[in-house]
Amino acid sequence: MTKDAPAIGWSRDDIARRLARDIPNGWYVNLGIGIPELVARFVPEGRTLVYHTENGLLGMGPSPAAGKGDPELINAGKRQVTALAGASFFDQATSFAMIRGGHLDLSVLGALQVASNGDLANWSTGGSDAIPAVGGAMDLVAGVKRVFVITQHVTKEGEHKLVERCTYPLTGCGVVNRIYSDLAVVDVTPDGFRVVELAPGVDFAFLQKNTSAPLLAPIS
């Protein structure tokens, strides 16, 4: 149990740990800013992943020790990082050739909404006062071989994030493969959402009540 363990379901660390379990040794992975970054902490022993950061580094390592940072060695979240043995630097056209050319194995992203057809909305709520900013999200979901979403199942206000159709502006159409939430692991299939695994204390009826699209039962 982790410190922030909720009454039911998984903590953020638990979700990241559950997702990390599903990444095979040797994959080239892009972790989005925020919760997706947690995944790197929970990669099972004996597996080595190669982390890509779209601003131009393959083989990204953890934050530098205090006082050892380099303001020009940063990740896509503009935080200082390190370059591991075997790392390489490259320009933006090359970095996005890795993404758009289908060379990366996995992109892990956060979500505002995911639809049962795999549509993803994660860059804008469409608010008129918001400054629109997209970064590399649309390129990642369009180009990377697999897209995993890591997210709370519902918003702090209780709004469902797994929906029939996204109402926020899309990041990409039919791009999400699997969702890891605090309540469940859910696959996006041609028939809609299919539950893969329920978090501790969560039953199917509770998950359905917190999801605005029909759920298919796990394949036993």
Binding site: Q92, A93, R100, V134, A137, G143
Partner: peptide
């Protein structure tokens, strides 16, 4: 503001 996805921006420049 002309907002462009980062990879599309890089490729448009290239």
């Amino acid at each position: 503001l002309e907002l462009v996805p980062q990879g599309t921006l890089a490729e448009r420049i290239r």
